[in-house]
């Protein structure tokens, strides 16, 4: 979305300006536009430009060529209509009877593209409804395994912290390096060891 449009009143009123120039603006929009026009010389100039154009178009539309159709034209289209009238009448009555069989449409405006979009929207609404409104039933796998007790959790935590604090043979320092501190001794800089100690004492 173009954010400039929101903060630019001239752009917001552009369509109304065109409609005003064409003499086709409803009153509420016109009032809002009138306030804007009082403050904006650029839009006033643009309105004058569009009004000149609209005036010329209206003038041209009123100056249609003063020509009369030939009598043969009328004879021609009338003959064609009388020729096809029986077939057209039959087709219309068939349409009417078909419409009578099905009845009048409940929503006459819901046709064509609108009907297609409404169908898609309804489908999505159903999908979302069933996705989020299903009850929170336990899943079969989860239901088979009982939840762990607090003791099991504490034991698992203690085992994990012991594994982390134990030295690995591959990580032994070379001879010229200062030796590593005793793995069994608690390391004051590691907060995890405090928790382990606390657990052991507890």
């Amino acid at each position: 979305m173009n954010v400039n449009w929101l903060f630019n009143p001239c752009r917001r009123h552009a369509v109304d300006l065109g409609l005003l120039a064409a003499g086709a603006l409803a009153r509420p929009d016109g009032d809002r536009l009138a306030k804007h026009l009082e403050r904006c010389p650029g839009c006033r100039a643009r309105l004058a430009q569009l009004r000149t154009l609209a005036r010329e178009l209206t003038q041209d539309g009123r100056n249609l060529p003063s020509v009369e159709p030939s009598p043969s034209l009328r004879r021609r289209w009338m003959a064609e209509i009388h020729r096809i009238a029986p077939a057209t009448g039959e087709r219309r009555s068939e349409d009417r009877s078909r419409a009578g069989d099905w009845g009048a449409p409940a929503l006459p405006w819901l046709t064509g593209r609108r009907l297609a979009w409404s169908g898609i929207a309804a489908m999505w609404a159903l999908i979302l409804f069933f996705r989020f409104s299903a009850p929170d039933a336990p899943r079969p796998m989860a239901a088979a395994i009982p939840p762990p007790t607090l003791r099991q959790l504490l034991l698992a935590f203690r085992t994990e912290t012991h594994e982390l604090s134990a030295p690995t043979p591959a990580a032994a320092p070379p001879d010229n390096q200062p030796s590593a501190p005793d793995a069994t001794a608690p390391r004051s800089e590691c907060p995890e060891n405090h928790s382990t100690k606390n657990l052991n004492t507890a």
């Binding site: 249609l64 060529p65 020509v67 159709p69 034209l73 289209w77 209509i81 009238a85 057209t88």
Partner: peptide
């Protein structure tokens, strides 16, 4: 008549305008 004048303004050719008007009126029917 008005339709014919509008057709002449579009086509700028009375013969073509007559064809257009005849087609239009039959299509409208």
């Amino acid at each position: 008549t008005r339709l014919f004048q509008q057709a002449v303004a579009l086509c700028r050719n009375p013969a073509a305008a007559e064809d257009l008007v005849a087609e239009t009126l039959v299509e409208a029917w």
